[in-house]
Computed example of a mutant assay.
Amino acid sequence: MKRKLLGVIDATTYHEDLEDLLTHRSLAALPFAGRYRIIDFVLSNMVNSGIRSVAIFPKMQYRSLMDHLGSGKNWDLNRKRDGLFFFPSPIVDNDGNKIGSFEHFAANMDYFYRSTQEYAIIANCNTIFNMDLRPILDWHRQAKCDITEIHHQDGNSMEMYMVKTSLLIKLIEGRHETGYTCMKDVVTAIHNEYSICHYEYDGYAVKIDSIESYFSTSMKLLQSDVWKKLFLKEQPILTKVKDEPPTKYVQDSVVKNAMIANGCFISGTVENSIIARGVKIGKGAVIKNCIIMQKCQIEENCYLDSVILDKDVRVEAGTQLTGTTKSPYVIRKGLKQGALMNS
Results as ranks from 00 to 15, higher is better:
165 T>E: 06
119 Y>S: 12
172 I>G: 08
162 M>L: 15
201 Y>H: 15
165 T>N: 04
132 D>G: 09
159 E>P: 00
131 M>N: 07
173 E>H: 09
171 L>Y: 15
147 I>Y: 00
165 T>W: 04
201 Y>W: 15
203 G>D: 11
169 I>W: 07
162 M>R: 14
200 E>N: 15
124 N>G: 11
179 G>F: 08
165 T>A: 07
199 Y>C: 11
157 S>Y: 05
126 N>W: 05
163 V>R: 10
181 T>I: 02
194 Y>P: 01
134 R>W: 08
120 A>G: 08
202 D>Y: 10
182 C>M: 03
192 N>R: 08
190 I>K: 15
155 G>T: 07
140 H>S: 11
187 V>H: 04
116 T>L: 01
170 K>R: 11
178 T>W: 02
152 H>E: 10
132 D>S: 10
155 G>Y: 00
127 T>D: 04
135 P>R: 03
190 I>V: 12
139 W>C: 04
171 L>H: 13
126 N>Y: 07
162 M>G: 03
150 I>G: 05
176 H>T: 11
172 I>K: 07
141 R>W: 01
119 Y>M: 09
203 G>N: 13
161 Y>N: 06
134 R>A: 07
178 T>L: 04
193 E>G: 14
151 H>R: 13
176 H>N: 13
189 A>L: 00
193 E>W: 05
181 T>S: 11
163 V>Y: 08
130 N>W: 05
202 D>S: 14
168 L>C: 08
136 I>E: 07
189 A>K: 14
